Deep mutational scan, measured.
Amino acid sequence: GSPLAQQIKNIHSFIHQAKAAGRMDEVRTLQENLHQLMHEYFQQ
C-alpha cells in the first residue's frame, strides 16, 4: 500500500497501545494525527 496507508495503520496501533496504557492525552494527540492523515489520504 501507499506510505500514507501504512502510516494510518501504524497510528491505529499506537492509539490501541496508548489506550491500553491509559495515556488518554496521547490518545487524543494520535487521533488528531489520524484525522489529518485520513484527510490527506482521501485528497489523493
Rank of each mutant, 00 (worst) to 15 (best):
L34Q: 00
A18G: 01
P3M: 14
S13E: 14
T29Y: 09
A20W: 05
Q17V: 09
R23G: 02
I15H: 00
P3G: 13
Q44M: 11
Y41A: 05
R28E: 08
M38A: 03
Q6H: 07
S2A: 12
E26Y: 05
A5M: 14
Q17S: 08
Q36T: 09
L4V: 05
Q43L: 12
H39D: 07
L30W: 07
P3I: 12
T29H: 10
A18E: 02
F42P: 02
N33H: 15
E40I: 10
A20Y: 04
A20Q: 10
K9L: 09
P3Y: 14
A5N: 06
A21N: 07
K9I: 09
L34C: 04
K9G: 04
N33M: 15
H16V: 12
E32A: 11
T29N: 08
I15Q: 00
P3K: 12
Q17K: 11
N33C: 09
Q6F: 07
E26I: 12
K9D: 05
E26R: 04
I15M: 04
V27S: 01
Y41H: 06
R23P: 01
E40Y: 07
A21W: 04
R28L: 10
R28Q: 10
G1M: 13
P3W: 15
Q31I: 13
L4D: 02
A20L: 13
H12K: 14
A20D: 07
I11W: 02
Q7P: 01
L34N: 00
L4Q: 02
P3N: 14
I8S: 00
L30R: 01
Q7A: 11
H35G: 05
H16Y: 09
Y41Q: 04
R23K: 11
S2M: 13
E40T: 06
Q7S: 05
H16P: 01
P3D: 14
Q36G: 04
S2N: 11
M38T: 03
A18H: 03
G1Y: 03
M38N: 02
I8Q: 00
I8D: 00
R23S: 05
N10E: 14
L34K: 00
Q43T: 11
D25H: 05
A5P: 06
L4K: 03
Q7T: 07
E26M: 07
Q31Y: 14
F42E: 07
E32W: 09
H12A: 09
H39W: 12
S13L: 14
M38G: 01
H16N: 12
Q44D: 07
Y41G: 02
Q36W: 08
H16F: 08
M24F: 13
K19R: 12
M24C: 09
S2Q: 10
Y41M: 07
Q44E: 09
Q44P: 06
D25M: 03
R28I: 10
H12W: 15
Q17I: 13
K19F: 13
G1Q: 11
I8K: 00
S2K: 09
V27A: 06
H35F: 11
L37V: 04
F14P: 00
Q6N: 07
Q7K: 10
A21I: 03
T29F: 10
F14D: 10
L30I: 01
H35V: 13
K19I: 15
G1N: 13
L37Q: 01
S2I: 14
L34A: 02
Q43M: 11
L4P: 02
H35C: 08
I8N: 00
L37D: 00
M38W: 10
E40C: 07
G22H: 05
L37S: 01
M38D: 01
Q7R: 08
A21F: 04
F14V: 07
V27D: 01
N33K: 15
Q44F: 10
Y41V: 05
K9M: 10
S13W: 14
Q6E: 13
G1C: 04
D25A: 04
H16L: 13
A18Y: 04
D25G: 03
Q36K: 13
H12E: 10
Q44S: 10
D25T: 04
M38F: 06
H35S: 12
I15W: 02
R28C: 06
I11Y: 06
M38K: 03
M24L: 13
R28W: 07
I8M: 04
Y41N: 03
L30N: 01
R28K: 12
M24T: 08
A5H: 10
L37Y: 02
I15N: 00
Q36F: 08
A20T: 08
A5R: 10
I11R: 00
T29A: 14
I11Q: 02
E40A: 10
H39P: 01
T29S: 10
M38L: 14
F14R: 15
M24P: 05
L34I: 03
K9A: 13
L4S: 03
A21V: 04
R23Y: 05
H35P: 00
L4M: 05
V27Q: 01
G1V: 13
R28S: 06
H35D: 10
Q36I: 10
F14Y: 11
Q44R: 07
E40R: 07
T29D: 08
L34S: 00
R23I: 03
L34W: 02
N33R: 15
A20K: 10
N33P: 01
Q17M: 10
R23L: 10
I15E: 00
M38S: 02
A21H: 05
D25Q: 05
Q43A: 12
Q36Y: 07
D25K: 04
H39S: 11
I11S: 01
H16Q: 15
A18C: 04
E32M: 10
A5T: 08
Q6T: 10
E40L: 13
I15C: 04
R28T: 07
L37G: 00
G22T: 01
M24S: 05
E26H: 05
R23V: 02
G22W: 04
A5G: 07
G22Q: 03
F14H: 12
V27E: 01
E32Y: 08
L30Y: 04
A5D: 08
G22R: 02
N10T: 12
I8T: 01
F14M: 15
N33D: 08
F14Q: 15
S2G: 11
N33L: 15
V27M: 05
S13F: 15
N33A: 15
I8W: 03
L37M: 05
S13G: 10
H12G: 03
M24G: 05
H39T: 12
K9Q: 10
A21C: 09
T29K: 15
A21P: 01
Y41D: 02
I11V: 07
I11A: 04
